[in-house]
Write a protein that binds this DNA or RNA. Sequence first.
DNA 1: ACTCGACTGAGGTACGTTCCTCATTTATCA
DNA 2: TGATAAATGAGGAACGTACCTCAGTCGAGT
Lengths: 343, 343
Amino acid sequence: MDKPTVHDIAKEAGVSLATVDRVLNARPGVRTKTIEKVRAAVTRLGYVRDTSAANLSRRRAYRFVFLLPEGSGQFATSLKHAVREASRSQIADRVAVDVHEVPTHDPHAIVRALMRLNSDALDGVAIMAPETPQVRDAIVRLKEAGTAVVALVSDLPNAPRDNFIGIDNNAAGRTAALIMGRFLAKSGEILVLTNSMRSRDSLERRLGFDTVIASEFSGQSVLPSIEGFEDPERIRCIVRDVVTNRPNLVGVYSTGFGTTPLLEALRSSGRLKDLVVLAHELTPTTRRALLENEIAAVIMQDVGHLVRSAMRILRAICDDIPIFDAQERIRIEVILRENLPAA
Amino acid sequence: MDKPTVHDIAKEAGVSLATVDRVLNARPGVRTKTIEKVRAAVTRLGYVRDTSAANLSRRRAYRFVFLLPEGSGQFATSLKHAVREASRSQIADRVAVDVHEVPTHDPHAIVRALMRLNSDALDGVAIMAPETPQVRDAIVRLKEAGTAVVALVSDLPNAPRDNFIGIDNNAAGRTAALIMGRFLAKSGEILVLTNSMRSRDSLERRLGFDTVIASEFSGQSVLPSIEGFEDPERIRCIVRDVVTNRPNLVGVYSTGFGTTPLLEALRSSGRLKDLVVLAHELTPTTRRALLENEIAAVIMQDVGHLVRSAMRILRAICDDIPIFDAQERIRIEVILRENLPAA
DNA sequence: ACTCGACTGAGGTACGTTCCTCATTTATCA
DNA sequence: TGATAAATGAGGAACGTACCTCAGTCGAGT
């Protein structure tokens, strides 16, 4: 009736506890035939290892590093905050997390940060960074040293990362397009502000957006992307320019960072209330803009979920246990003024 | 450097391990002064009890019951599925879950099911049922017997439930209204199909919906609610009637069960594609309708999250440890065709 | 000062697992 | 067939906590 333990397995298989242990932990010195006997007993009794007891016994401690974009961006800040919060919860039981900040726009700095990581004192890494050949090489090295690696927010599909934790950015762009198309009362031009076309997530969002607008809202035309490069002044400048020269502008889609200067520029142009504005990520800026009806909708991913997911997945990889996908799928959330989560 | 243990606390406080144990587990026979000393040591060292070791030691096993609406409704089915799935995950470590199904429309049956529960063999209950005085009394009894009780999906605000796990249904209705209002190209009449005005969640959704339509989309008028009472034939009938007699109908909002017959009736009327239809909960029916562009949007709550949350919260209540709110907040999710989660 | 009861200490066992050591058995090959 | 290595058994200590017993200490009231 009770959950079977290793002792039960030993009895059932007609072997000693030591042998069961050797089999369960893949230690050498057991005949294939004996291994089979133990395996059979395990399935027959439906044994599942008690992870907490196991971790207690082996004094397991997980050491994880989060490699996040440095600086004051609101999204990055909330990510860091989420990491801190998660490390104080039950999920972070027996795990020590370090956050390393790197300037995202500098590929060398990212690689340097990756190289600095000491695989001996490390069990897993969660990386949010654009993919470059050097980054890929650094990840190969980490993997070879036996470190678990997951990509966060922006995928690194050509690197041997164990997992990607984030939304399907193409679908996010498509979703934004659908909302934009249906919210727009009249047809005209749509401005897309991206972070940088080098970063995979921005690119995919733009692609998805264009596809849906083209196929379903052919009355609308999408202007070439503006790259913000995280430079507020640059963004303000360009946006002002577009607003002045494009009287036919009806919508704006901000795919990444830079929503704050964007809104500033639009606000001062006096045309903000006539435009349908969509942005990504719920930050103090976008929250306020939603409440003021300046932004129609925000596409977001739950950073708390993102971080907790990363921790659970890193643990699962370290322990070589299966990942519970349903729990880890990051949703593309659509936030309107009325379903704004409590601050 | 390492995490402090009870031994460290004992040393730090200058008392014996037994005393620390007495204090930590609120056992009698310790002077207030000594309690203080131990408490001080705990905060000074930042001690946190190792829950897995504790549970291992006390051979803790949680026995929970989920009281869910019986029958074939798609939402109820997916809830039950989520319970099964969750009980096979790490969250369900050391917990045994039972699902009891009750006919929701029969208040007596619910009460009978509640009375049948044996508090001695039970640590917690998650209930999804409309609130009636009898239900409230039964919950009072459960609480008095020391059982943890949480309300699921539909709140029981006047019963002494420990917690409500579900969305803010008023906000959900408001969100639906906002989408409806912005999606509608022309003004007209909106039909609202509810489950039953007796059930709290339907009522709140309707209220929120009306408020926002009235205040922000005054061109639209909302027809009196149709109560479906989970009777497909009845729903088909009434909907057919409304569609025929209301040429000015522009939108339909289904707040609960009954979306399948609703869509059937609308489809056969030939007017479906001209209407903006909103529904609740992602089911095979609504999923398909989204893909076919029959439904514009679905408001949903993640049932998997709901169930896992319920389990975590029930555990937390049993162990008398704080609840990690950020993780437990159930989001009002807006699902469009493009951000449909993978099946 | 003595007694009684409340408080405290010391030590043990247990939970299910890991990871030792050491002795013993079994299979394999010369 | 004996030597040798491989496989197995038996047992114990540890992880951090809970909970038990029993003996000892302390303080208050008489």
